[in-house]
Design a protein around this nucleic acid. Structure first.
Lengths: 354, 354
DNA sequence: TTGTACGCGTTATCAT
DNA sequence: ATGATAACGCGTACAA
């Protein structure tokens, strides 16, 4: 057999366009045009198709990418594949398939070095676009990508300021509504487990909490505000601290899913019931919350919509490159899913104000 | 500025190795050697580093890949980013970073066309390796990859037969132990919600159930065996059917997480309690199961170990290509996590046998 | 050690 | 519509 050869790397060499052209008795230009859907004379087309079949020819997208400066590859980087990020990735992946691209996926460790590693990979592999959770500590490599015209899209997080597109949700307003719900049913001692206050998202969610309370004339009690940095473990210990307060809260607002899990775990181990002993509302809606006992009232982020929006921004950026519009920031709405994790409280004040 | 140029695509052109060589006053061969860590004369090295800095040069991994026939890119394809696959992907992603690779991620729709699309992408983009959930319906493209020496690694599923490496878990034995636990505490009317019986994994998990029952001399009651095809929705309706049986089961074995969620949802809507009204054991251990009321007894798959094993198989395949060893099948152990979802049943038989 | 020059597989341009 | 040929950016023999 002379159709295939072995390379020193132990991999069988792929047939090339040149071999196809030879066997079909046409020029490589003709084959290239055939491959790219341009018109080709009927007889030639048949010859080419036959040659391709016989040789098992497969287009080398790497070579094409080098020529076209387009890899059809999109960088995707998140801190973890949590219950929030995993569905986003799944939706994105399906959307990308529709436009003939795929995602180069990286999980960073939230430390600068790992982020730098990932970005180096993306830059050197010439991704067409970069999608990532917004960071505050901006790596120079992100600026580099922006500088050479690669669209960068943040989602979920990240301060305004950097010239990138952003797909965010109405964190502050949704938090406000969630906490207001607790106020409406009579709670005033409401604690919060916040994400990194330094993050835009963490700050906004806290701010919604703050405004809701202040709006009802309730002062913020520092003992009720615990920065658990988005982590389950810190929420777990934070919850313990809340319970040991002389006047523990009657309700709890968790700024993400992980922290709700931490809090629930501790409550469970201490034999405390939601909502009998404490009411609970959380950001992020996950299967767990539908099934947990009475169900957990939660803020549902529009995951599918987030992925769609990212995809369409990418498409428009990629179609008219060069014309660089100002960056967009798109803010999507959240739904509050009411379940059974909150209990109406009849407070002395409430009775008095009737 | 003449340092940078604009391409017609609207993207700024990257500096090349040639420009670096020019500016550094050395030959491109020298720059290339410098980049790849080969020895270079001190003075030259400094010149090169300076030039790289000034030009903002970044190695073009695409061009390198074309030359080396190595993309440092690994295909990853799964049906969804479920609570099982997402953590596997996360672990894999981190492991890949350590070896300078990244995953091209695809979610297929379990239909042949979408799988073919993904495989086409992988083949044309010349991934160094392919990692996927094992399929029974083998696409010709998988054979093509194998044929040209690209390692293919199945996990989670897939019939033996195809010459690929496999990383599986002891589905049958773990199922056997899980069901045996139910038997030990007095249950004999045990129903099962199975995954696709046609899948290897689905078949094995069912087989473990079957053998456990037969081992105790209990015949398989067809009414108690429902093929829910891994889906939550089908488990939901299947559960309904079980409850309407003249003699409903006292215990339920769910062959994956999704189906457990479906069953739990229906039970909840019907006001039935686990384990008071029915005992439950499930495959897959997820946060939900830790927190659900009394906790759900579950079979925990060794997710991190799965990812590690895949990575090391990949490494060895890639290091000595050419020498094609016979394919490995590695079977990992599962743990059974006992929680509160099963209730000891005092049956007449049990009393009699004392 | 360094420089030169060719090849990797495509696409695109220019005549024909 | 087709054929010949020049890029694309890098790695690497080979000669110096």
């Amino acid at each position: 057999m002379s159709d295939s050869d072995d390379t020193e790397s132990g991999r069988r060499r792929h047939a090339t366009i040149v071999e196809v052209a030879d066997r079909a008795g046409v020029a490589i230009g003709t084959v290239s045009r055939y491959l790219n859907g341009h018109p080709v004379r009927r007889g030639n087309r048949e010859q080419i198709e036959q040659a391709i079949g016989q040789l098992g020819y497969r287009r080398n997208a790497i070579a094409a990418a080098m020529k076209a400066d387009l890899t059809n590859t999109v960088g995707f980087m998140v801190p973890s594949l949590s219950e929030f990020h995993a569905p986003v990735l799944e939706h994105l992946s399906r959307a990308m398939r529709r436009v003939g691209r795929a995602l180069l996926t990286y999980c960073h460790d939230a430390n600068p070095a790992s982020i730098a590693d990932a970005l180096d990979f993306f830059v050197t592999h010439r991704v067409d676009c970069l999608i990532m959770d917004g960071r505050n500590d901006v790596d120079e490599r992100i600026l580099e990508l922006i500088g050479n015209g690669t669209p960068v899209i943040f989602y979920d997080n990240g301060w305004p300021g950097l010239p990138v597109d952003r797909v965010l949700v109405e964190n502050r307003a949704a938090s406000f509504r969630a906490v207001t719900h607790l106020l409406d049913i009579g709670h005033s001692r409401i604690a919060v487990l916040t994400g990194n206050i330094g993050d835009w998202t963490g700050g906004e969610r806290f701010e919604g909490y703050r405004q809701a309370l202040l709006g009802r004339g309730i002062e913020i009690n520092p003992d009720y505000v615990l920065d658990s940095h988005w982590y389950e473990t810190e929420a777990y210990s934070g919850m313990l601290r809340l319970l040991s307060l002389p006047e523990p809260p009657t309700a709890l607002y968790c700024c993400n899913y992980n922290m709700a899990v931490g809090a629930l775990r501790l409550l469970r181990e201490h034999g405390l019931k939601v909502p009998d002993d404490i009411s609970l509302v959380s950001f992020d809606d996950v299967p767990l919350f539908q099934l947990h006992d009475t169900g957990i009232t939660a803020v549902a982020q529009p995951v599918a919509k987030i992925a769609e929006t990212i995809t369409s921004i990418m498409a428009s950026r990629l179609s008219d490159r060069g014309l660089s519009h100002a960056p967009h920031t798109i803010t999507l709405n959240c739904d509050i899913i009411l379940r059974g994790s909150t209990r109406r409280l009849i407070t002395p004040q409430a009775l008095g104000s009737r």
